[in-house]
Amino acid sequence: MSRIAETFARLRGEGRVALMPYLTVGFPERESTLDLVPALEAAGASLFELGMPFSDPLADGATIQRATQRALENGVNLASCIETVAALRARGVAAPMLLMGYYNPLIRYGVERACADLAAAGGDGWIIPDMPPEESAELHAASAAHGLDLIMFVAPTTPDERIAAIAAQASGFIYIVSLTGVTGARASMSADLSGILDRVRRVSDLPLVVGFGISSAAHVADVARFADGAIVGSALIARLEGLPAADLVSGAVDFVADLLGGAAAPSGGV
């Protein structure tokens, strides 16, 4: 059983949903991720989505765009993201860690090489928002060969027949995009969140994890009524932006601890 599967099985037994923070590798400083991930794991975060900086983050809103640009200025690239995963494992991080980003850096690095290196570093998979299932064969095969999960996306606008095709290729969990548009904190969750989750559950037994727009404990609690996990990205990045260096880790821990109040709600997941 993979680290991802073990994590969701354990959380189901505990009656909790997964809280998955997103952190841009190398933001706000090049080494910040090495301090933030262990602290947030100790605070109760279940999995980590680690952003690979890229010049054209087309699925991301202004907050993550700023973080990505800062990380690029700090000299972070795909190779250093993989090195960060290895360093975090060496520091004792046990939670699943997935690299999130865009396909062009993997093509330049080499898809097979990237998968081999990420697996050797102790990574668990990829989240690639600009990778449509019709073009995922090479990355899917290389990921599977190295024991990595390739996370697939379903959006509110995805038709049922396409959901079935996506579910047939998915592993680890399915990323449910809660709304149309780019990433960014929102005041409220989609009124039809349960509807899209029900549509996916008809064709998949994988855990369903909701992202885009989640920014508060109330949002996490709302997600927990229907799904298996919640991803919090822009709201956490925005919190980090406003913190002095001396308070970076403690401020992030306080924010995640507050969100975990929502994660304790009974899950409607698998």
Rank of each mutant, 00 (worst) to 15 (best):
I151R: 06
A164Y: 07
I174F: 03
I166K: 05
M152L: 13
V182W: 01
M189G: 13
Q169C: 12
S194P: 01
R201N: 03
T180E: 14
F153N: 04
D198L: 05
S194W: 01
R202Y: 00
G147Y: 15
F173M: 00
V177G: 03
F153R: 04
A142K: 14
G195P: 02
G172P: 08
V203N: 00
V203F: 03
H146K: 10
T157M: 08
L193W: 01
P159M: 14
V182F: 07
T158F: 07
L148G: 05
R202V: 14
F173H: 03
A164E: 14
S143L: 12
M189Q: 08
A164T: 09
A142Y: 14
I176G: 01
T157P: 03
V182C: 01
A185R: 09
T180A: 10
I151S: 06
R202A: 14
T157L: 09
L148A: 10
Q169K: 15
G195N: 05
A187Y: 13
P156N: 11
D160S: 11
D160F: 06
I163Q: 02
T157I: 10
I176N: 03
I151E: 06
D149C: 15
R199Q: 04
D192T: 15
D198N: 07
G147L: 09
A191N: 06
A164H: 09
T180I: 12
S188W: 04
I163M: 05
A145K: 11
E161C: 04
I163W: 00
L150D: 06
V154W: 02
A187Q: 14
P159E: 12
L179N: 04
F153S: 03
A144S: 14
F173Q: 00
V203K: 00
A144N: 09
G184Y: 14
R199Y: 10
A168E: 15
G184D: 02
E161T: 11
I166Y: 02
I151H: 09
I196P: 00
A191I: 05
T183W: 06
V182A: 06
R201A: 00
A155M: 10
L179M: 13
A164C: 08
R201G: 01
A187R: 15
P156F: 00
